Simulated scan of single mutants.
Amino acid sequence: MEVEASEMEVEQQQQQPVQNSQSSTKAFGLKNSIQTNFGDDYVFQIVPRDDWTSMAVSLSTNAVKLYSPMTGQYLGECKGHSSTINHICFSGASNQHVLHSCSSDGTIRAWDTRNFQQVSCITAGSSQEVFSFSFGGSDDNLLAAGCQSQILFWDWRNRKQVSCLEESHVDDVTQVHFVPGHQNKLASASADGLICIFDTNGDINDDDHLESVINVGTSIAKIGFLGDFSEKLWCLSNIETLSVWNWNEGTNEANFEDARSLASESWTLDHVDYFVDCHSSGGENLWVIGGTNGGSLGYFPVKYKGEAVIGPPEAVLGGGHMGVVRSILPTSNMQSGPAQSRGIFGWTGGEDGRLCCWMSDDSPEISRSWITSALAKKSPRTRKNCRHQPY
């Protein structure tokens, strides 16, 4: 088994904290730092298994590595893709050991994480790239995939393609998501600036099953859902704008065209250069997670009702990364369990090839949580600071 480099960095020294003018801001200490490789490879995405016994990490080596989120222990590697891995996720509680991945090599693969072997492969076509996928449908039998201006559907039980939508988007379909609680509804987002909502009941086609279209106006990077009934969605664009929509009604709740400036003005650290993701802990609460090219992160609360406001960061993570952060796995997604009992706030991964585990400042394992560059292992190379564009 491959040996991974790991440093357990429980803070022993009382460093001087970086001051923030907002007393409500929490600082988080670096607990565990893992070097995922020894080259110039990126961490793309981190996702947890349903029971949180492992987490999968996609890398720019076209491989997926698995680790324990509790200890950082390296568990194994899934290799088989021949091009960039664009999206990974575990199956649900009924099949927790199966991991799925899609790639620019035109395939969606399933892996048995008990032995790290491939167990199935669905091909979208040799000339296709698969950017995103989602499982759902009224009978929970559909696999949808976002490709180059097309949305493909398979019955995942027999791996037969059942539909191809090719008239709704004119550019790469960067995101597809079956809506939580509305499993027959599929939301797709594209570099053409459109979000489309489809009803996937029956024989799916562009003419009869496209219910509504939201025009964001610029290339879309990520979307996600919030609200008690997942009736709203947030949208991050590739030019770092943020918007909130009611997808059911097709109405705009808020536009943050200057989101980076608003976030930057609310803390005393460097300018926010990019957004990594958004986070909703249930209900209508929303945070946008901004980062600097130097690797610092802030969790900024988003108020989108009435006056649109991005508030001061409620959490700051610094001193772990030396470059752009690409993915965040907050353990607040887990209601209870070992991670919370150990005070683990979450994991991050970035273009410096590192995974960092962050401890909450009331954790019994550390006496104080400072933001300090002294906790980070210096990279032997100078890595580029520009944000990687996967499309």
Rank of each mutant, 00 (worst) to 15 (best):
D51L: 12
I122M: 01
S363T: 07
H271F: 12
S266T: 09
L262Y: 08
K222P: 06
N37E: 07
S60G: 04
A110Y: 14
L236H: 04
I220R: 02
A27L: 15
F229M: 14
V276S: 07
V64E: 06
R354Y: 02
T331A: 06
Q16F: 13
S132E: 12
S21V: 03
I108W: 10
N252W: 11
G294E: 11
N205Q: 05
W111E: 05
D155T: 04
I344L: 14
R159T: 13
P338M: 01
G350E: 09
P330I: 02
A221R: 11
S280H: 15
A315Q: 04
G295H: 08
P330N: 08
V64H: 07
G76D: 09
T292L: 11
E166G: 14
I344M: 11
K185W: 12
G295L: 02
G202N: 07
V272T: 14
D273C: 14
A5V: 08
N205I: 07
C89H: 05
A191G: 15
F90D: 01
A124H: 09
T174I: 04
Q148N: 12
A187K: 00
Q15G: 02
G76L: 05
P364A: 05
S212E: 10
G250R: 03
N285H: 08
P301C: 00
T200D: 00
V316I: 09
F133D: 05
A145E: 03
A5Y: 01
C386F: 12
P312C: 06
S296V: 08
D41L: 12
V216R: 02
L297N: 03
R114S: 04
K384G: 15
E253L: 14
M8T: 15
D50F: 13
S138R: 10
L165F: 07
L233F: 09
N141A: 10
I122D: 02
L30T: 07
D362V: 07
D361E: 12
T107I: 11
D105V: 06
